[in-house]
């Protein structure tokens, strides 16, 4: 297990390094930072002045190493637009995205895994059809449309829940449902397929031959094996929810990090874009690492050679 963990950790580190390099160079290829900083009315001389002042004229590798060195210490430079340290902005915006992401993935898991299990126990039953219906609707319905629908019903007509902002826990209910529902179909279908396959396996027959009770057979013997592929999928979904929820964040005016990135791209605010992309990539890397560990714990064939 230790060797496995170290291997995965080393791999994660390499991926992080690669991602940071790509992030840095891509933003530089996309636009000229000196022009962006100087603004639209600046003369060529001004731009040249800024370029030498901030060291944008140096080789890109030197700039990358300097940037990476400071990033490790939590210093991502200063936002061109806000004139504030990027780390301050991140510190302000990240918690909103994190809360939303954690709530949404929890909602998705709590909804989809039990439904997937129930659907697999009685395939083609009414419950299975219902679960299928829920997942088809979830897959087909654009999440922004669902968001507007929920706002209309719960926010405007029933006046039960707030529809913009992030002040109280109530503000997170609708975005959680919309974002969580988006991830539900895939997780549920994968749980159902996995459970169906496992329930037909020889070791489940053995478990039944031992006279074990249905809950023990389902949850101890079946679910643990069925859920292994679900873990990897949920980790990726979670990463997506943390970073890719720009649409949802803007609809509900939740000013999270995804929204910040989107704003900053429009403003050519390179230090912010770089930092947000890097942080989200690191989230993905950490989540993948954690899901690998969780899978190794679930499946001894991975951890015991």
């Amino acid at each position: 297990m230790l060797v496995y963990t170290l291997k995965r950790l080393f791999l994660a580190f390499l991926v992080a390094l690669t991602v940071s390099a790509i992030t840095f160079s891509l933003t530089y290829l996309a636009s000229d930072p000196a022009t962006a900083m100087a603004g639209e009315t600046a003369s060529d001389a001004d731009i040249e002045y800024i370029r030498t002042l901030y060291g944008f004229d140096r080789p890109i590798t030197v700039q990358y190493l300097e940037w990476a060195g400071r990033a490790i210490q939590g210093d991502f430079g200063e936002s061109f637009y806000f004139k504030l340290p990027v780390s301050t902005l991140l510190f302000e915006r990240l918690p909103v995205s994190m809360i939303l992401g954690v709530c949404a993935i929890s909602f998705a898991i709590i909804l989809s895994i039990p439904l997937g299990v129930l659907a697999a126990i009685r395939p083609n039953s009414f419950l299975d059809r219902m679960a299928l219906g829920i997942s088809v609707v979830g897959q087909a319905m654009p999440s922004f449309w669902l968001a507007l629908l929920l706002i209309l019903i719960f926010g405007v007509n029933l006046n039960l829940l707030p529809i913009t902002g992030s002040e109280t826990w109530k503000h997170f209910i609708l975005p959680t449902i919309v974002l969580g529902y988006y991830a539900t179909p895939a997780i549920m279908r994968l749980t159902r397929t996995g459970m169906l396959e496992v329930l037909g396996s020889d070791y489940i027959r053995t478990a039944r031959a031992k006279g074990l009770s249905l809950p023990v057979i389902l949850f101890k013997h079946a679910l643990r094996n069925a859920v292994i592929p679900v873990v990897s999928l949920a980790a990726v979904q979670f990463g997506f929810m943390l970073g890719g929820s720009i649409v949802i964040e803007s609809i509900f005016a939740l000013h999270g990090a995804g929204y910040l990135a989107w704003e900053s791209i429009g403003r050519n605010d390179l230090p912010v874009v770089q930092a947000v992309v890097l942080v989200f990539s690191l989230f993905y890397i950490v989540l993948t690492f954690l899901s690998d560990l969780l899978n190794a714990w679930l499946d001894p064939r991975i951890r015991v050679g």
Binding site: R208, K210, S213
Partner: peptide
């Protein structure tokens, strides 16, 4: 279920897959 695995037990054909890998 109270009899199964207790007063009568079964051995299956496929030892490779009849035990739970987890």
């Amino acid at each position: 279920a109270a009899i199964r695995g207790n007063r009568m037990a079964m051995i299956f054909q496929e030892p490779m897959t009849s035990l739970n890998p987890a």
